[in-house]
């Protein structure tokens, strides 16, 4: 159960108050009619599924009803930052991989009981 900092409410709130809305920063093409079917299909249907840093859009549905962005690590589920609609992330996969250079994490198998 996530604990999410709402950048509009200025505090952490329980996940139950939020709805996830998929990948962030998907912009609707300015001129849809100028898009090829393929371009339009990509806009509509294709999303990233990274292992690691991911930018997502959430809405504080039971709260201020504002949409905002979440930078989340898809392995650790750690939320690295949240930021308002229209803002850009300060933490990205690139900035993270530079910071962690050389700190390779070994991924061993585990027994899941």
């Amino acid at each position: 159960m996530f604990y999410i900092y709402c950048p509009y409410c200025g505090e952490h709130r329980e996940e139950e108050e939020f709805h996830p809305k998929g990948q962030a920063h998907i912009e609707r093409p300015k001129e849809p009619e100028a898009c090829s079917d393929e371009e339009w299909g990509n806009y509509l249907f294709f999303r990233d599924n990274p292992r690691g840093v991911h930018h997502e859009m959430w809405v504080h549905a039971v709260g201020c009803r504002k949409f905002f962005n979440v930078t989340r690590h898809t392995v650790s589920y750690e939320i690295l930052e949240t930021y308002k609609m229209g803002e850009q992330p300060s933490i990205t996969a690139d900035s993270q991989s530079q910071a962690r250079e050389g700190a390779a994490v070994s991924q061993q198998e585990g027994v899941r009981a």
Binding site: Q108, E109, G110, R112, A113
Partner: peptide, 10 residues
């Protein structure tokens, strides 16, 4: 032992 794996519990 660590080569065989780690234990993860649910």
């Amino acid at each position: 032992i660590p080569e065989v794996g780690t234990t993860v519990f649910r």
